[in-house]
Design a protein around this nucleic acid. Structure first.
Lengths: 263, 263
DNA sequence: TGTCAACTGTCAGCGCCTGACATTAGCCTC
DNA sequence: GAGGCTAATGTCAGGCGCTGACAGTTGACA
């Protein structure tokens, strides 16, 4: 990728950018995002304010530079999953896998410690949280396309990729939020939390949480309605799912049109 | 609630605020959010810029004033659902119900038409979309608390309310997005779209979309088998699934994937 | 009517961000 | 190695969002 002889100019640019990024993040986490001025960042690297804006589209952009790396890292991991894995399985493994290898990718830019702190800052700073969520939504788009590709579906006409990814990402967000505000900020704990939360998706979507009788509708979770946290064999599970396939198929056969009410 | 004699001063304030809000939204939708300056809004109502900031915390705040109404409208609807409804059922009905009655609530402030246009603007303006998503996340918090209350659970210790609400809201977001960018901007179409998408949640979370057998895996619904899923059990399940999938794929109209492993 | 409190306008200023232009510094050719 | 080309940087001016401070105005109430 990178040329063996980047040239002095290129190297200098790289160093400037890295220095700006690092200074920015360090100032952000040490004294808060809003309290940090672009002038301060620029001054810390001894460049003009104008130069900062030539490397980053804005203050925000600096705060999310590392996030951008990890996101594309995750997408690559998903793309690399074997094609015969079911969608949610592939998503799950891609995240977990990317947690494992994310350290190396990040460390080239900034210390992992700093990145983790930045993430916590993002979660706790309203202005940054908003941007973070928008970025996540954008990522969701991409994930939906990848999933649709994997399944050989058209993301425009079939809502299932979007919906599955939406549910998945929703859970991931809750996980990230809890991890960020929780005490243990190690990658290991993030991994554990992620796994356990993803394990809860099925039961949570089951209609009945308290052993209420006959409350389950096919609307909410047909494939999972046999999910009360009681004994269930693998065989039963498969049967239930098989009938669910039916529902899914008929659902897909009737793609929704938005103009059904032309007024 | 409101006093019978609000007093001249109070009425004047109310009128100013309403005029500012309306002028703001109208300018936003007609010439874009970023292209509209606060000075313009203030000038349209013939007050000083400073006064605008005394009624709204910022430009954004004006853009989301009506959204705030509809959100609390929805939360109230959820709180009013009978306690014996399963969580996702209650959520579903509360949304649909609130679509039906939202017109009246909104019209007191601005024309519904203007509100719908504003929503579309929010979805298509990055800066506003970001804030919108943060607000939605905040709403999610509240919904999780309400659901937990309904189920008699503790939202801090039991992750299921959060997860269920997260999945639900994820789907709702996809719905809103499609509706906003779609052609038909009637409330009726929003209703229809919402219903059909919520109907797809279950099937979409089933692991098997293509007639592959053995769909439900520990990924999606692990608690289907009650005990903490030991890794060994999981592996067994996975193997079974893999082989079953193989046979099914060759039988059904299995969509061939284009790229197996690009790298 | 006069006092008090609330609302509003004006002014100054900070911070983010951008366009325009001048200056510096790496790169390449002769 | 000198000189020209081009990219990177600095400087300046200015728009826009937003805020604090102070002064003027207007409803409320005795």
């Amino acid at each position: 990728m990178t040329a063996p002889h980047p040239g002095l100019r290129e190297r200098k640019k790289q160093r400037t950018r890295e220095a700006l990024l690092r200074a920015a993040l360090e100032l952000f986490v040490s004294q808060g995002y809003e309290q940090t001025t672009v002038d301060e960042i620029a001054e810390a690297v001894d460049v003009s304010q104008r130069t900062f804006f030539r490397y980053f589209a804005g203050k925000e952009d600096a705060a999310f530079a590392v996030q951008a790396m990890t996101e594309s890292h995750f997408v690559r991991a998903l793309r690399a999953r074997p094609a015969d894995e079911p969608p949610l399985e592939a998503l799950r493994r891609a995240v977990l896998e990317s947690w494992d290898t994310i350290g190396d990718a990040v460390e080239q830019a900034v210390p992992v410690e700093l990145h983790v702190r930045t993430y916590q800052l993002i979660e706790s700073t309203p202005a940054l949280l908003a941007v973070h969520l928008r970025r996540s939504a954008h990522l969701e788009e991409e994930l939906a396309r990848v999933v649709a590709d994997r399944e050989g579906l058209d993301v425009a006409s079939d809502p299932r990729p979007r919906i599955a990814v939406a549910a998945f990402c929703g859970v991931m967000r809750v996980t990230g939020r809890l991890w960020g505000t929780g005490g243990d900020s190690s990658i290991a704990s993030l991994r554990t939390l992620t796994e356990s939360y993803l394990d809860h998706v099925g039961p949570a979507l089951a209609a009945n949480w308290q052993g209420r009788a006959g409350a389950a509708r096919e609307t909410t979770a047909p494939a999972l309605k046999a999910a009360p946290p009681t004994r269930d064999t693998a065989a039963t599970t498969r049967d239930t799912t098989a009938s669910a396939r039916h529902t899914a198929a008929s659902g897909a056969a009737a793609p929704q049109r938005r103009d059904s009410h032309p007024h």
